[in-house]
Design a binder for these strands. Structure first.
Lengths: 144, 144
DNA sequence: TACTAGGTGGGAAGAAGTGGGAAATTTCTT
DNA sequence: AAGAAATTTCCCACTTCTTCCCACCTAGTA
């Protein structure tokens, strides 16, 4: 299980260290995709296979399914982890998630998320303020 | 699986490099067809057989199926990949998809799409604005 | 204070994208 | 039908970006 929050930097060569604690679980290759709320997702190849299978069950002839598949498949990249645990995030994904130098890497159960540091702070603040309201919503649908 | 986004140029001789990561899967010959939403599709010969079979199963009695088939079959061309991974896109296909010099090549699962650079940027921006809707779709098919 | 572990940075070798030239094939004209 | 011209195809070369490896630095710990 991937948990925890780590602040790392992207160096001049656009390399990003994965937190030590995540490396064993992530393995030597990972798949980076556009995420939600402005972050990037990082999956292990096997998890990505599960997700892509679900995605592929939609028809090419439907316009919303097409755009959705383009978004996810076109935005996904398999990158290899170098000998000391770093990955190279392609430019088009960095742009999309506004990743510059300071990023926050978070473990969320079975995936890793990469956030722009400021975006993450704002988001976290927002969530903390709304925590009570969110808890009530979750409660009302039977989560907690 | 074909994934990722690559920006390439069409040179003066109208040659287009396929991204290195796609070459192995695409092989020595590919089929280029008019795509949807203003792009071109690139299939492997075997994938093209699957697609064309599906298309030909649609009823010839429906006028929209007929026109769509004319659109796809009439515009399809088999081209060979040269020794360093480039293809030659016929002029009538370049015109149709407004391909000039800067193009974006995207992997979408089992096909490759070729986009005019600007058209792709616009399209991507449009899709990204729909992120919330996309998130709900992800939930509804059980991805996240 | 010294040692270890993890994060950051840089240089060199290699690969990939782009461009150009020469040869071959086709087509048009005389 | 033959020659010339133009287009295509194959191959090679250059340049830029990537990738791999090694070194440093900082922080935490014994």
């Amino acid at each position: 299980m991937l948990i925890g929050e780590y602040t790392h930097t992207v160096d001049d060569k656009k390399r990003l260290s994965l937190p030590m604690k995540f490396r064993k679980e992530l393995g030597k290759k990972v798949v980076v995709t556009p995420g939600l709320d402005g972050c990037l997702f990082v999956f292990t190849p096997s998890q990505w296979r599960v997700i892509s299978k679900k995605l592929s069950e939609s028809s090419m002839l439907q316009s919303d399914a097409r755009s959705f598949n383009r978004y996810m498949f076109g935005g996904a990249v398999e990158v290899s982890v170098d000998s000391i645990g770093r990955i190279l995030v392609p430019e088009f994904l960095r742009e999309r998630s506004h990743i510059t130098d300071k990023v926050v890497v978070i473990g969320v159960q079975d995936r890793v998320e990469i956030w722009n540091e400021k975006a993450w702070k704002d988001y976290k603040q927002f969530v903390e303020r709304e925590a009570d309201t969110l808890a009530e919503k979750l409660g009302s649908i039977g989560v907690l």
